[in-house]
């Protein structure tokens, strides 16, 4: 059974004149124990919103309109806030985008981890908490004695490791990493990816990686969910997404990604901009930018349903067909 399953999740943001903006519509996916899922899309496509919604950490103006978030078969959207607190960090934990720059600059890294442990009642005693903090630092590849240092004495890569250590404080079963390597150099990116892969294997974590970087997903994830304009465009195993993608958006995205092994190949760009939330197209949300030769009048009129093309491979496009 899936550890985490999201069904038909829709989230609105409310503009100050009261108009609801449909930021996320009908998104669903599931993650098995010990598997990894990559959620890919451009900025503004709603990928972070989905994560915030399933942790129920949406900003004030966000509303979960419909859907279910099943953690171990239980819908956490029905939970009370105190029940939810048991799920957050213990069940599902998240490394927020830019969290490495949000560490408290005037406290040691260790004391910040200790604080996280105590807030979540993992360990009562301060000594035990400090021991555990040391273990966590070791786990993410930081020598425990460096826990006494302050964040500014850390490099970017080490700060990101420390943030990951904090997210692991309560032994979560699902770890969400939101753009964990943006703004880091390639070599440090590789180090962080390796760390996440190792942690996933060692701790049997289910990993959700939210990113706009297809290469990262190809390197680390078992399954991929491609989002566009707040909706699922395509989802399948990595192998399928990267080798036989069906949705025109996925195909364009792949063509736009430079491949160091094929430096001579052309890069296709995707002209235009992602749809604005207050001006969503009536039909398929990708239609205004779609250059697929098979697109027809229906694309501009009705939103395509998400259909299963072959087992485990779903796409939302009028011009894709089921296999067999």
């Amino acid at each position: 059974m899936a550890v985490l399953e999201v069904r038909n999740l829709s989230v609105d943001y409310v503009a100050d004149d009261g108009t609801p903006l449909h930021a996320v519509a009908d998104v669903g996916f599931s993650v098995e124990q010990g598997r990894s899922l990559g959620i890919v899309g451009e900025s503004g496509c709603g990928k972070t919103t989905v994560m915030m919604a399933l942790l129920r950490l949406l900003p004030e103006e966000g509303r979960i309109v419909s859907g279910q978030v099943l953690f171990d078969g239980q819908d956490v959207l029905q939970y009370s806030e105190s029940q939810m607190r048991q799920v957050r960090w213990r069940g599902i934990s998240m490394v927020f985008q830019g969290a490495m720059n949000a560490l408290n600059p005037v406290r040691t890294v260790e004391s910040q981890i200790v604080e996280a442990l105590q807030i979540h009642d993992v360990v009562e005693q301060r000594r035990a908490a400090r021991e555990r903090a040391g273990e966590l630092l070791q786990l993410v590849g930081i020598p425990p004695q460096r826990g006494r240092q302050y964040p500014h004495q850390y490099s970017g890569g080490m700060r990101q490791r420390a943030v990951i250590a904090m997210a692991l404080a309560c032994n979560p079963r699902v770890l969400i990493a939101d753009e964990p390597t943006t703004a880091l150099d390639v070599m440090i990116q590789a180090q962080i990816l390796e760390l996440l892969e190792r942690l996933q294997a060692e701790l049997e974590l289910s990993l959700i990686m939210v990113t706009h970087d297809l290469g990262m997903v190809a390197e680390t994830c078992d399954d991929v969910l491609v989002m566009y304009g707040g909706m699922v465009a395509e989802k399948a195993s990595s192998d399928v997404i990267f080798n036989t993608p069906q949705h025109p958006y996925t195909r364009r995205l792949l063509e736009a990604f430079p491949d160091v092994e094929e430096p001579d190949s052309d890069l296709a760009s995707i002209p235009g901009n992602p749809p604005r939330l207050d001006d969503l197209p009536a039909g398929c949300r990708f239609e205004p930018r779609c250059e697929c030769p098979e697109r027809g009048a229906i694309c501009a009129q009705t939103a395509p349903p998400l259909v299963e093309l072959e087992p485990g491979h779903w796409a939302a496009c009028h011009s894709v067909r089921r296999v067999g």
Partner: peptide, 16 residues
Amino acid sequence: HHLFDARRMVALAVGV
């Protein structure tokens, strides 16, 4: 944010 057309978002009192 260009996606929000400069409208500031505030809470809605009705609904969920």
